[in-house]
Simulated assay, not measured.
Amino acid sequence: MYELFVLGELMTGEKHGYMLQEILKNAAGPGRQISSGTLYPLLSRLVDSGQIHLRHEEESEGGRLRKVYALTEAGRVRFHELMEEPLESNTDTERLINFKMVYFQYVTKDVRLACLKQYLNHLQTIRKYVKNFETQLISHKPEPAKQRNQLLRVFDHRLRVGEADIEWVTEEIERIEREE
């Protein structure tokens, strides 16, 4: 997922490592921060594999050398491969689709539609799972009743959020399908 982020950000132009880290901190949200110990080894692997190019630039203040990264043609190819990879349903699906949507302007309509349809399928699978669990809970009426009732409230919340997500993704698919 972070590989997609780095390559996607470099699609917009070269950036130094600190800038990439700051953008990712904001993109990932307050609950998930990327450490230098994760980002810089990833950048090194991408340089070693030829997906990005590293050059050193002297910083105006302090005279330190700043590492500036740029995308190579191999990195561009890898970016498109990552964008075309099917989504897997796991704990990172939400964050990954959000990263992918940020970079939709760099891929074809077919890739955008495939990503959104896979995400829609993921959301519908979650909705079905929650509804099935809710049905079992209602029919079996496990004790204590207060806990069961609170769990049903949680399911109600999840279903409402899921319905809103499904509605938005469906509208986005329809919007993209209308594009020329």
Rank of each mutant, 00 (worst) to 15 (best):
G37C: 01
S49H: 09
L10N: 12
I97Y: 07
R45T: 07
E22Q: 15
R112C: 14
V107S: 11
E84D: 12
F99N: 05
Y69L: 10
E58C: 04
R127E: 15
R127H: 13
L71C: 06
E85I: 07
L43D: 04
K67H: 10
G31P: 00
M83C: 00
I126M: 13
V6K: 07
L39S: 04
L120W: 01
E58I: 03
L113K: 05
L96Y: 01
T91H: 13
R66Y: 04
E61R: 15
Y119K: 01
L46Y: 04
V6H: 03
R32A: 14
I23K: 13
L96V: 09
R76M: 09
S44V: 00
M19P: 08
E57I: 13
L20W: 06
D110L: 10
N26W: 08
L116P: 05
A28M: 14
I34H: 04
D48V: 02
E61H: 10
Q21H: 05
I97Q: 12
R76A: 11
L46N: 03
H80Y: 09
R64P: 08
E73Q: 11
D110H: 12
L65H: 09
R32F: 13
Y18A: 12
G8V: 02
G62P: 10
Y106I: 00
M83K: 04
K100M: 06
G63P: 13
I23D: 07
S89R: 15
G31E: 13
P86Y: 05
L46R: 05
L71V: 02
L20K: 03
Y69A: 06
E58V: 10
L10C: 11
E22K: 15
Q124I: 03
L42W: 05
V47H: 02
E59I: 10
L42E: 00
L113D: 03
R78M: 00
R112I: 12
K25T: 10
M101W: 08
S60W: 10
H56A: 11
F99K: 09
V68A: 03
K15R: 15
I97H: 04
S89T: 13
M83A: 00
H16R: 12
L39Y: 05
N90R: 11
L7S: 05
R95I: 09
R64H: 14
H16N: 15
S36L: 12
E81L: 06
A27M: 13
G29R: 02
H53R: 10
S49L: 01
L7N: 02
